[in-house]
Design a protein around this nucleic acid. Structure first.
Lengths: 332, 332
DNA sequence: GTGAAAGCGCTAACAC
DNA sequence: GTGTTAGCGCTTTCAC
């Protein structure tokens, strides 16, 4: 049996209320008493039971984080940002993987709420109605990190992906390209379908370049998928000369496909992509990319969540972070 | 105020004990009663409070995971393995980053134990005395994942890194090399100092190749560190012709250093490394490597932890998983 | 400045 | 098969 607050109280000849005050830093304790209690705590090796505390106080100082797959660098970077801010505010984090399954997502939300998390950070490709319904039963705040809410009702933290795509495509256009292929991850991901693709099209339209639907190619967002997927681009009519890739995994897959096929970047194709993880830097040529501030996305999401949990007034629930363009060698 | 078991009991005209039985799948409930209770649960939107349950049952179905840095692929892969098995056994996981700081590690252990985790999985470069002391106060099982215990007292799951290094170096030797450089991550990491380095030396000794201490180079375990660190190797006396790298981040850093310096792999240097993450596959030439089964390391650690938590008899607390050698193009 | 006592929402005997 | 009741280890009034 572990040491309880009661054991400490008996040992120190005070009531458990006083021990509780000492443990919680309440000032209404005579210094001498405080010292006596602290000594007993030390001597007995008392460790407050956070579960009991959680039940009594209705706060667990724990937040939930639901992520598609923590082994993907996109989410592990983001999670690190969340974790650091969580630590700063003395929250622990329960982390779960959903694999993008709606059923699993709903289950996990229910599960985390049952564990009485004080708040929830959720990431996914898209918010299904079921998930939305699950969230609506929550009595704690929820923030979407790096995840769009098409209804714009939930708190979110993102960059302006549409603008980023616009900027990237525009850069290709200014380099003289008119035949620009957009290689996207799955359109089941809102960010791909709603933001990046739209930014791509808008950039073309603003430059009076006709949009060729076959130049929009959807594929799995993985290195291997893109390496294989390269064949689709090679066989495209219309001789494209530039590519914007939805992620650096895709970009690197294409790059290796291009080179293993005897062509080269940026001579035969100029290439620009999103993300700029380590992948974009280890390949030659290094990839010119839109840098998505993943860590910050996480950190700001958690910061927003703390405000919401504290009931603070938040002027804007839809936070947009800046992105930047990192120029390397995959464009001339 | 949330719906409690008591509300459901009143609504269904049964006692809270019966509701508890239904919720917990206890068979001693008449089907009709069960249905009635289930209906009320559904209707009221009752969600069991896991905190209250944890306090009453002294089990939280939550484990703690303490990791140096979740944003490093090594740990995020491993954590995914842990998470999947945890899900299988219906545990949640509280995940925290220690950044290898002993103080932080001790704090986190204390913190997790305070949250009443049912078990703990710990990862670090090395187990300090303070951490060992913190662990000794735990009344729940602890497993070290991908982390050595030099005292061999704690439960651990690893591969035989020494043997792996031996195999790798041996492969270089059989290709005719005698001047083999070992580029290691920090020797503050037990696995580097105690296992890999020893395997390297043993392979040389078994082949009657004299060990040249300057051929053992310690550097930061990062791409950028190794890219810079390449200079040290270039300036080495004795003309080494082969390199074994402690990780693929190091290997890729060296590879790019070598190539940006006008030399090439495997012509000027043959190269072999540990890990084989995506990095090893996107570079050209692809890297021949020892594959460390990170996911499995995590999964098996969690499986072991479940056994320990159940009080099951475990024949061997020091689990060794197999590794394999993946032959690609950085060796002839 | 300190103590007594009533919960927090559940589980787990034990009784019937 | 179901109900009663005593905790689990704290926080939090409310007295004193």
């Amino acid at each position: 049996m572990a040491i309880t607050i009661y054991d400490v109280a008996r040992e120190a000849n005070v009531s458990m209320a006083t021990v509780s005050r000492v443990v919680n830093g309440n000032q209404n304790v005579k210094p001498a008493t405080r010292k006596k209690v602290l000594d007993c705590i030390e001597r007995l090796g008392y460790r407050p039971n956070a579960v009991a505390r959680g039940l009594a106080s209705k706060k667990t100082t724990t937040i939930g984080v639901i992520v598609p797959d923590i082994s993907k660098s996109f989410y592990s970077e983001l999670s690190r940002g969340i974790a650091d801010v969580a630590t700063m505010y003395e929250y622990n984090m329960i982390l779960s993987n959903s694999d993008e399954s709606t059923d699993r997502e709903v289950e996990l939300i229910e599960d985390h709420l049952g564990k009485q998390v004080d708040g929830l950070i959720f990431m996914s490709d898209s918010i299904s109605d079921e998930v939305r319904a699950g969230m609506s039963t929550a009595n704690v705040p929820i923030v979407l990190a790096g995840t769009l809410d098409v209804e714009k009702q939930l708190a979110t933290v993102n960059i302006d992906y549409e603008e980023a795509a616009y900027v990237a495509v525009n850069k290709l256009i200014r380099n003289g390209h008119t035949k620009i292929v957009f290689v996207s991850g799955p359109f089941t991901r809102d960010i791909n379908r709603i933001s990046k693709k739209v930014g791509y099209m808008r950039a073309l339209q603003d430059a009076d370049i006709p949009v060729d639907e076959q130049f929009v190619i959807e594929m799995e967002d993985t290195y291997d998928g893109a390496y294989e997927g390269w064949k689709q681009i090679r066989e495209l009519q219309g001789q494209p000369t530039a590519i914007i890739a939805g992620s650096d995994a895709i970009a690197v897959g294409l790059l290796n496909g291009i080179r293993d096929g005897g062509l080269s970047v940026p001579e035969d194709y100029e290439l620009i992509c999103f993300e700029h993880s380590i992948l974009a830097r280890v390949v030659r040529p290094q990839l010119t990319s839109i840098v998505v501030p993943l860590y910050d996305l996480g950190a700001v999401s958690m910061r927003l969540l703390t405000k919401l949990m504290n009931g603070e007034e938040v002027e804007e629930q839809q936070v947009i972070l800046p992105f930047r363009l990192e120029e390397r060698k995959s464009m001339k």
